[in-house]
Design a protein around this nucleic acid. Structure first.
Lengths: 112, 112
DNA sequence: TCCTATGCATAAGAAATTTATGTATATTAG
DNA sequence: CTAATATACATAAATTTCTTATGCATAGGA
């Protein structure tokens, strides 16, 4: 919410990471998972999520599979082979970034 | 460089934090300090930095003091009283954000 | 029956940045 | 001595990324 503006640029990587972990997920599920994992700290808005998913698909990093559950539409996304490779790279980049931010913001912290 | 796009939204807080620590700094000095502290990982571009400093000044969070050193202009910025209060708040928010990101990206990490 | 949750989508606008310039002085390498 | 690099500021145009505001539709609970 308040600090959602902070993850500009990292949303795509978060999506890739979750999909890589879970195998496949649908949009709404991703928003709930992020909320859960961050204990309510991070809320992905639909206006950010869906365009991001479409872009990742257009880039060939995700595959879609439509399903109907309880008479409701779901679009399951899962990483392509290329998507899995990209996930590794982007995740490493994001981890480096987080480490750098910590170094700047609170050098007393150390990562175990 | 590559991941400079990742700190969208956190640049202002980084600036405030450094100025709070050092007392006062000038623009170019900030870019060098960030580069040094992050071991070359984070590079603040001038096109991002100077407008950010001007905005923080306009918001009443920074004071400016012009100096001429070696026949070259320098603009020293330092936090106002209000700026110091804001630094505390924004820093706390950024730390929460970093912790949340870690939780998402690498739950194995823990902060000591 | 209305509100909330689930589930998708897009368009307009805002915000933060990159990229590309521009100006000027000082220093260092060739 | 001259060209490149470093120091030091600045701004404008374009881009990226996100928020906010909608819209549609089904399901379930109060």
């Amino acid at each position: 919410m308040g600090n959602s503006k902070l993850y500009k640029g990292s949303l795509n990587t978060i999506i890739l990471k979750l999909l890589d972990e879970e195998g496949k997920m649908y949009g709404y599920e991703i928003t709930q998972k992020v909320k859960e994992l961050s204990k309510g700290e991070l809320n992905i808005t639909e206006g950010a999520l869906y365009p991001a998913l479409h872009k990742l698909e257009a880039e060939g990093l995700l595959d879609v599979e439509v399903a109907k559950v309880d008479n409701r539409l779901r679009k399951y996304y899962k990483p392509t082979e290329q998507g899995e490779k990209e996930t590794i790279n982007r995740l490493a980049e994001l981890e480096d970034f987080i480490r750098s931010m910590q170094q700047l913001v609170n050098p007393k912290w150390s990562i175990q």
